[in-house]
């Protein structure tokens, strides 16, 4: 009786141990990125350590890390062309609603090797398993991974360097200290980027930690873009006045009569 109870307790301890044994401590090289017109892209660095919980010990090795960075949500239309009467026309469109404008999945090895499909799907890890909702009729839903619109959307975003899966994006400096390089391209949109760090071992999620970074575009070009977006009338009047002023100036400078 006693022996059986002790065994049950031991099994319980082993089962509960992995979820409570590790903690993640992370730190970002800079949490605010000011983007000017000369910005050609930058790698932000995230450092972190795997810490044992009080009274627990860590495994000597075998940890896996996945860092998911997602930019502010946006809605984008994906359009497909087909030949109609000899010319190429957009015949079909799908709207992706509130999907990340930027999405980077950085890991120390391919995510498919880190955990099973079910776990990846549940945790939304990897481009194939991230929820990308499309407007379908009055509803919104994600489609199967090999849906042609979904695949094209992801491919085009990858071409713009806005979506990426980097299986070597996380490097372990020691078995418990890691570093992840978050690549920010020049066309990274303004806003708050959520950073989600997940620790795995033997295919199971052990711990997670979150952080955020802010991308702020500054400089003259951004000022112009903001005015165009928010003060359309004033911006239009200004542009028109500039046009007429330059036309008038030319007529004064190059007066022919």
């Amino acid at each position: 009786m006693m022996r059986r109870a002790a065994l049950a307790l031991a099994i319980l301890c082993i089962a509960a141990m992995p979820t409570a044994a590790e903690r993640l401590v992370i730190s970002l090289s800079n949490a605010r990125v000011g983007v000017t017109s000369s910005f050609t892209g930058e790698d932000l660095v995230l450092f972190g350590t795997i810490e044992p919980d009080q009274g627990k010990t860590l495994m000597p090795s075998g940890y896996d890390l996945v860092v998911t960075v997602s930019g502010p949500p946006e809605s984008t239309r994906t359009r497909r062309k087909a030949r109609v009467l000899g010319i190429w026309v957009n015949v079909d469109t799908r709207e992706f609603v509130n999907v990340p404008s930027y999405l980077a999945i950085l890991s120390n090895r391919p995510v498919a090797a880190i955990a099973s499909q079910q776990v990846l799907r549940r945790q939304q890890i990897g481009l194939a398993y991230t929820l990308l909702t499309q407007r379908i009729g009055p509803d919104t839903a994600d489609t199967v991974t090999n849906d042609p619109f979904r695949m094209s959307f992801v491919r085009l975003k990858e071409q713009q360097h806005l979506y990426r899966e980097a299986p070597e994006g996380v490097t372990f400096l020691t078995p418990t200290v890691f570093r992840a390089a978050i690549p920010l391209p020049a066309n990274a949109p303004n806003g708050t980027y959520a950073i989600d760090v997940k620790l795995f071992a033997r295919g199971a999620l052990l711990a997670r930690a979150g952080s955020a970074l802010e991308v702020i575009k500054t400089g003259f070009e951004q000022y112009v873009a903001d005015r165009a977006q928010h003060d359309g009338l004033l911006y239009g009047l200004g542009t028109t006045a500039m046009a007429l002023a330059i036309g008038w100036l030319a007529s004064v400078v190059f007066r022919r009569d």
Binding site: P72, E74, S75, R77, T78, R80, K81, A82, F153, P189
Partner: peptide
């Protein structure tokens, strides 16, 4: 066309 698919941003944040 080189690519039959294209994107158009509808609404940012």
């Amino acid at each position: 066309p080189e690519d039959l698919y294209s994107l158009r941003l509808v609404r940012g944040q």
